[in-house]
Design a protein around this nucleic acid. Structure first.
Length: 202
DNA sequence: CGCGGGATTGACT
DNA sequence: GTCAATCCCGCGT
């Protein structure tokens, strides 16, 4: 069942915990006509591809007071989406090369989101670009996850609940006893907020 | 308008 | 363990 707006319209830490085990679904339409001639198939009509990834690690970024949260600096062109309604994608570019996927949480006007850090592809024999086939591949890190799911800033602000292109599915039961909590990564600048145990993993 | 740095990754020691 | 890559963004002139 697809996760709806009310799922995200709750406390960010709760949403971050409950996103573990959920399935992130990406639908891409590949324009094979755009491939270079050497790779172009005989029939180059658009092909739909569905990529499914089971979420295994998240981080909560909890509103205007949380100094690790981008929105703690107020509403800016970048953070605008976080101030909007829950259930939308907040995407930004980090270190000039990697995209990070977040889902906006809490009521409209309260800027908070959950960063999707890692996931695994529940299918075998997935083909990474330029790498050999490996079984049960892991998408370890927000940048890799976005790369493999073809997610970038063009999806910023997309309604995850609308189910077009990117959405979340509740598929299997997640045992809360399997959830580990730890400190968020790379937020050393955030004062007392850096030690919050707001990273969750399976 | 210039400048510093980042919710990261991969290559290398 | 260290470090460079690379582009926006946010802030101070």
């Amino acid at each position: 069942m697809r996760l709806n707006r009310e799922f995200f319209n709750r406390n960010t830490v709760v949403v971050a915990r409950e996103l573990l085990g959920k399935y992130l679904v990406r639908r891409v339409v590949e324009n094979r006509a755009a491939l270079p001639n050497s790779q172009k198939p005989d029939f180059h009509y658009p092909v739909e591809r569905i990529i499914i990834a089971k979420i295994t690690e998240t981080e909560a970024y909890c509103g205007p007071n949380d100094l690790a949260c981008h929105a703690s600096k107020g509403m800016t062109p970048r953070t605008k989406v976080m101030f909007g309604p829950p259930g939308r994608a907040y995407l930004y570019l980090i270190y000039g090369m990697h995209h990070c996927l977040n889902i906006v949480t809490e009521k409209e006007g309260y800027p908070a989101a959950v960063l999707i850090r890692t996931a695994e592809l529940p299918i075998s024999n997935y083909q990474f670009p330029n790498k050999s086939q490996i079984p049960n591949p892991k998408l370890n890190g927000p940048g890799i996850l976005c790369r493999e799911l073809k997610i970038d800033k063009t999806l910023n602000g997309m309604d995850i609940c609308a189910g077009k292109g990117l959405w979340l599915e509740d598929v299997e039961k997640t045992l809360t006893s399997r959830i580990k909590k730890s400190k968020r990564k790379a937020v050393e600048y955030a004062g007392k907020w850096k030690d919050k145990l707001w990273r969750f993993s399976l």
